[in-house]
Every structure is written in structure tokens, then in C-alpha cells.
Simulated scan of single mutants.
Amino acid sequence: MNAFLEQPACAEERGTWCANVYELTGHDWLAASADWLIAKPLKILLILGIAFLIRFALHRVIGKVTTPPPNGESKSPALLRSLRERSSVLNSDTLAERRRQRAATIGSVLKSITSFVVFLIAAMLVLSELGINLGPILASAGVVGVAVGFGAQNLVRDFLSGIFMMVEDQYGVGDYIDAGEAEGTVETVGLRVTTLRDINGTVWYVRNGEIMRVGNYSQSYAVAVVNVPLAYNSNIDGASELLATVAQQVTGEDPVRAEVLEAPEVLGVTAMTPEYIQLRLTVKVKPGSQWMVQRALHGRITTALAEAGFERPMPRIFGGNNP
């Protein structure tokens, strides 16, 4: 009964948890421990509840910003439409797949970052409520972070490169790119690795941090370039007119016509070597179709030049005693 006879000093402070508990129970130990048994747990629960609410709200906002529209809708979140996509002539299926992968990756990264930041702040507030000194913990975390950063710097570089690549939309699913060591069609885009399939069917896994420069053949438009070598005694004006005529015919026929964006242009003589004079023809086409258009033009131009009597250059062979 002694516990009920001795009133703790904190019970004299009206409005405190200690005073309220002592008034209800008359127990000095419960009153003296009220701050630990009731106040601090309630504050911790409040901190955690607010943290979960903030995380939920941020995830909802991120989902709204990054989730592509349902099939059949033309509009899409502004975050997923880069400047190149707004003027892109990619087909709808390829563009939808690019947006879907970008949305999934960017959304996942943003949600992970927000969850980490929110729960880190909540954990620090909880530890502070428990009376734990955060100074040594933060110092130790800093040392561990530096050690991990040095040990996994390649992994960190891959992830950072992947994030910037995603945000800037340097390339996406369906693009044909030259990534330095590998060249091919992009099949998947991740934060750490980009997967390419080359013309031979080989799948290449390229680390994003190892990509120093990217040549994208599939953004906005492409140019089909046809170089035509002719002998020096050829009629250049006549050959140029013939190239223009054949190019107009080829680009006006199916299936090439559907891929052409602008009329073909004969640039004239672009190179002179000891063996031949080179004429160049260019056509602005949809991205990824330049090779098909080039093949069609090469075949028809070769036939037309042969029928018109133009001589194709022959390689010069030097004897061993010639100067």
C-alpha cells in the first residue's frame, strides 16, 4: 500500500500525464512511468501513422503522374512525353511500349526514394522520442555509406546512368541504337542494364554505366543515304537526272511510299577518288525504315544505270614495278 501513499512530484503538475494517471489510479509508479507507458507510445504511433499517410499520398501522386492511360486513350501523362516523343513518328504500339517501360521504371524509382526518405525521417523522430542520441548513429551511417559507395561505385554509376537515361528518354524499346560495343534493337530498358538484339539475333546486355555515347537511329526521323559511284567519263548531269527520276518512282510506290517523309534530294558529287566519282541521294524517312528504303533505291538505281549505259568504276590494280 506504500505505493499508493507516496505521491510522485510530477503528480503536482496539473494537466500532465503523470497527474492524470495518478488521479485515476492513485499508483505512484504508474503515474511516474506514464510518460513512457502512454505518452511516448502514442507519439510513436502518431509519427508512424503520419509517415504511412504521407507515403500513401506521395505514391498516389507518383502513380497519377507516371501511369500510362488505358488502351484506346490518346492522352498520356506529361512526364512520359518527352519533346522527341511529341514529334515522333513511331508507331503507336512501339510508343506505348516505350511509355509503359519508362513509366514502370521511373515510378518505381520515385516510389522507392519517397518511401526511403519518409521512413528514414520517421525512424529518426522515433529514436529521438526514445531518447537515443542520433549523433553517433548518423556518424556511423556516414562511414558505412562511404565504404559502400567505394565498394559498389560501378553499381551506383549504372543506376545513376539508368535514371538519367530514363528521364531524358535517350532511347527506348524498339529503337535501333549504337551503344559502342554493341549495336542493335532495344528489347528492354532497366536502371542497371539495357538489352539489345543485333542483326544476327545475338542478345547483348549492356551496363548503363559503361555506355559513353549512344547513337539512336530511331528518333523523330531517319535519312536513307544512297552513294552511287560512277566512272570519270560519265555524264554527271545525266546521271543526276536519272537518279532523281528513279528516286521519285521508287518513293511513290508501295511499300516505300508509306515510309517517306520528304521528297528525295540529289546532292550531286560528294567525293572524288582515283577510281570513281561519287553521287549522293538522300531521302528523309520514318525512323527504322532507312535500310529498307536504301535497299529499294539501290536495286532500282543499279538497274537504271546499267540500262542507260553508264559505266561503273573498276578498281585500279597496280603492278609491283609501277611507281
Rank of each mutant, 00 (worst) to 15 (best):
M1G: 07
A3G: 04
Q7M: 13
A9R: 13
C10F: 14
C10R: 08
A11G: 09
A11Q: 08
E13F: 11
T16M: 00
T16I: 01
N20C: 02
V21E: 10
Y22N: 01
G26L: 00
S33Q: 12
D35Q: 11
I38G: 01
L45K: 10
L45H: 06
L48T: 11
I50Q: 08
A51W: 01
V61Q: 08
T66M: 06
T66C: 11
T67D: 13
P68R: 02
P69N: 02
G72Y: 00
L80T: 05
R81T: 04
S92T: 11
R98N: 11
R99E: 08
Q101C: 01
S108C: 07
V109E: 02
L110Y: 12
K111E: 10
T114G: 03
S115D: 10
V117Y: 03
V117I: 13
L127N: 08
S128M: 02
G131H: 04
N133M: 06
P136A: 03
I137K: 06
I137V: 14
L138G: 03
V148Y: 11
G151T: 09
N154E: 13
N154Y: 09
F159C: 01
L160C: 05
S161Q: 07
M165D: 07
G180D: 02
E181I: 12
V189A: 00
V189I: 09
R197M: 10
I199M: 01
G201N: 07
Y205C: 04
V206L: 00
N208T: 06
N216Y: 05
S220N: 12
Y221H: 12
L242P: 13
A244T: 07
G252Q: 07
A258T: 15
E259K: 14
L261S: 05
E262N: 12
V269Y: 00
A271E: 15
P274V: 00
P274F: 00
E275G: 04
L279Q: 05
L279H: 09
K284M: 03
K286D: 02
S289Q: 14
Q290H: 14
V293P: 09
Q294F: 04
L297V: 05
G299Q: 14
A304T: 04
A304S: 12
G309E: 03
P315K: 00
R316I: 15
